[in-house]
Design a protein around this nucleic acid. Structure first.
Lengths: 205, 205
DNA sequence: TACCATTTGTGAAGCGTATCACAGAAATAT
DNA sequence: ATATTTCTGTGATACGCTTCACAAATGGTA
């Protein structure tokens, strides 16, 4: 659902302005800064049951808390990273500290030489220990950065071990029970789409 | 438009099976292998003006060609990569050879020590030469992998130099004239969304 | 006090996309 | 030759999300 993404975006902006004066924002300000419309903002906040004040807008710190209550697991979610190629290693620093609720607690790679190392504070395990570690750490969210040919099998192993959400960077279709959320970020397809629209765009003067 | 993405996915699968027998596919096969429905496939192919044959399906090589005619620039699109941090360097190998039509021909970084190097066959330039190189190479598509704080300015410079499509990896809102296509791949927001749905998913037995 | 300006909350309408469902066409079986 | 099956092409329908538009609320102003 798109609403979830917008709520994340709202929160990111709200955190930037938290602590400043004034202590509240109008729907039109939030919309302007996050690339949507005032009506959309009001509808989204209505949907999560957060009420504003006529003529004063929405309390910033309260709204940050409300979005957190809605989106986040109270204790945060441990995340696994599967595949320590170029892309996988590039993603580790993103979550090394930044995010308060999502933390990569385990990385896996089929190359046993990578096992035992600690990268960006994250312990690396051999692929064989995937199920054991996922279960032990109660990991339910994973990032998949393995080659396309290995993606399906890795996704199935993750699911069997208890993972319920996968962010997949491999250009491969992953079919899993619908109880598992799979979001594929396919860079090639995104670029092809962008090139398509860019080609149709009028030239500058 | 979602149709463009699906066409890319269709083509990827068709290329895998090209050359094998039989030389045509049914809409239900294509749907099955690409995660959509037969009616959707037929509608998409109808929309690009590609006709199949009753009881025989769609000719594979002809369909690959038709999707190419629809999606691709005839001579391919040169692509720029802006920002040679961890993520930027990880993306270079993706397009180093793989893709027949999209080729990263120039990379930029604000760190002048990276200039002059050639990574994965791609020449690196200092950020100061961005406009000049974009114009010279007639680049209209760019990948943005700079820090969030630098994303807006970089996007504006790219647009002013003639770029019409940007794949943005920075967690920042980029507001540009609507003639410019911007697709943001925000890893943090994708993960928050996945974690949200994972949390609501039923536990396994 | 009465009025005006502004902002929220939300039912209703609008829009774009996906799905349904069936006519038409072609291969196969009888 | 005729019936049957199975596939495409597409008008019509359904669905989900977004936007509209306005009542209700509230602070400011005369």
């Amino acid at each position: 659902m798109k609403r979830i993404e917008r709520l994340s975006v709202y929160r990111r902006f709200l955190r930037e302005i938290a602590g400043q004066e004034p202590s509240s924002v109008y729907s039109h300000e939030l919309a302007e800064k996050t690339g949507t419309t005032p009506a959309q903002v009001r509808r989204d906040l209505m949907e999560i049951g957060f009420a504003g004040h006529t003529k004063k807008g929405y309390g910033i710190s309260e709204l940050i808390a409300a979005i957190g209550d809605y989106l986040d697991s109270p204790d945060g979610d441990p995340v696994a990273l599967v595949g320590l190629g170029n892309l996988g290693r590039a993603l580790l620093p993103f979550f090394a500290d930044h995010h308060p609720k999502l933390k990569i607690v385990a990385a896996f790679d089929s190359d046993p030489r990578k096992a035992g190392r600690v990268i960006c504070g994250c312990r690396c395990y051999p692929a064989a220990e995937l199920e054991e570690v996922i279960r032990r750490e109660k990991i339910r969210v994973a990032i998949l950065t393995v080659p396309a040919a290995a993606a399906r099998k890795a996704a199935e192993r993750l699911t069997a071990a208890g993972v319920r959400g996968i962010l997949n960077f491999a250009p491969a279709l992953i079919r899993l029970p619908k109880a598992v959320t799979v979001e594929t970020m396919d860079i090639t397809i995104a670029l092809e789409k962008i090139a398509f629209f860019a080609r149709r765009s009028p030239d500058e003067g």
